[in-house]
Design a protein around this nucleic acid. Structure first.
Lengths: 255, 255
DNA sequence: ACAGATTATGAATCTGATTCACATAGTGAG
DNA sequence: CTCACTATGTGAATCAGATTCATAATCTGT
């Protein structure tokens, strides 16, 4: 009985050891150079063993990305607990997202890679389910704030469900990440501080939905102050947060 | 002299013949099954010849995607020439985008695939430049409408440049495409008609930027009428346009 | 201590992109 | 018309790297 449990535990432990090493290799050599045989070598396990854990390389990559979600969740939880109105918390989520994107740029590469249909095709159903499970609390946290806003009247009356509403902001952020990380085609359209820009567009979107309190769009000062408040009141406890780089103070009133 | 030109012409012709066949295979078997040796076989050229044209498989895929841009441009041009206010034309671009996404879903898979940094790394610099060149008129068309809006006062006063402003809508659309096409992770968050939803969020964004004339967000009827007008006045000449599928009439006033 | 079950191993296999030595065709001078 | 030369096309051979699976090693309960 207990032997079986010990085995299971050891199996799980080994899995996270493998993933830790994989992440290390990823950071060192990049996604392109990550190969299963080298990973096996570095872990001091055989390739076969790797394949007892993961049905394919892509499967492992999704496992890797899924592991990171808990870190992201930690940031989101801080925002959800923040004593602030719903609109400010929405901006807080955005901050968390941008923060995470900056600290773990690899995560976004990985995410983009494994959600590409060609690549995703090689992922096992189980792993996909695990990933969905892992993401659920993240989505719930986010959507609960949307619901709160709807029920307490922060929002103008809308015909959209919380999910439909939330997807708007989600898409906006996702799209900006995509444009920021897209290789090649977007070079001529690069912009100096994409996340400040995103922030401004999010305020536009929130104003458009009459999400109160409204922020005047061209008052960049007020937007910067809000960001500063998020940083101080939510994220300052977390070491290594560099909001100044993400959201540089606007010079002479322009982005 | 003229021999050389003939040769060049033949080379170009062969390239488009190869690409045409590649597109055919892509539609038939999908991106996953497209392989260079099979393509060579079907074209009745040798693999070596393929590699005289393209430095790698990814290089060829970008060439393929670039070819499609002219089709997309054709739709965008129709919108740009439309006799309507700037706001309606912005929605027109969105329509064109959604339309294209529906007619050529492969294009978006391809686009997503080749902009993934891992994949993009295998693309030659020349090909990348060609792709950027091909996209330029598309961006110019879009940005010229933004500029027009700014200069004729349709827009509230903003601190953003036309590019910075345009990127907002671009990111929103891009993000929605990504969420729609993302495999796996987004399953629990699927929504019945993502492009109607996108449209609603775009109106929110436009309202937020005080892009006149404002549309009330919960008047789905007015939004549906605008879409219908775009279809009738801009795209009806184009056969096979099925706006009804893209933007279904909202049932009982809800999305 | 042993049979049987479970798990680990890594050499062998397989897939498919890419290369390159050679074959072929085109060119222009004499 | 022929020949030397160049440019282009060919596809078998090479290479990279993921995946498999027959075998070895280890563990379990008796």
């Amino acid at each position: 009985m207990s032997t079986k449990k010990r085995r299971q535990r050891e199996f799980v432990e080994r899995e996270s050891r493998i993933l830790a090493k994989a992440w290390e290799l990823l950071e060192r050599d990049g996604l392109l150079k990550l190969q299963m045989s080298r990973l096996a070598e570095e872990c001091e396990y055989s390739v076969g063993t790797l394949y007892h854990h993961f049905s394919s390389k892509e499967d492992m990559l999704l496992a890797l990305a899924t592991e990171q979600v808990s870190e992201r969740l930690r940031l989101f939880e801080k925002v959800a607990q923040w004593q602030a109105n719903t609109r400010d918390r929405m901006i807080g989520f955005l901050f968390a997202d941008a923060l995470f994107a900056r600290r773990e740029p690899l995560f976004f590469h990985l995410q983009q890679y494994i959600t590409t249909p060609v690549i995703a095709a090689a992922i096992s159903e189980e792993r996909r389910q695990l990933a969905i499970e892992a993401h659920r609390p993240l989505a719930e946290l986010f959507l609960s704030v949307v619901e709160e806003a709807q029920s307490n009247g922060d929002l103008g009356n809308t015909t959209l469900s919380p999910l439909q509403l939330g997807l708007g902001l989600w898409a906006l952020a996702e799209g900006m990440h995509t444009l920021v990380h897209a290789e090649g085609l977007s070079e001529p359209y690069k912009v100096s501080s994409p996340y400040s820009l995103l922030l401004n567009h999010c305020h536009a979107w929130l104003n458009g939905h009459e999400w109160r309190p409204l922020y005047p769009l061209n008052d960049l000062q007020a937007q910067a102050e809000l960001i500063d408040r998020v940083r101080r009141e939510v994220f300052d406890v977390i070491p290594g947060v560099d909001a100044g780089v993400l959201f540089p103070q606007p010079a002479q009133g322009a982005l």
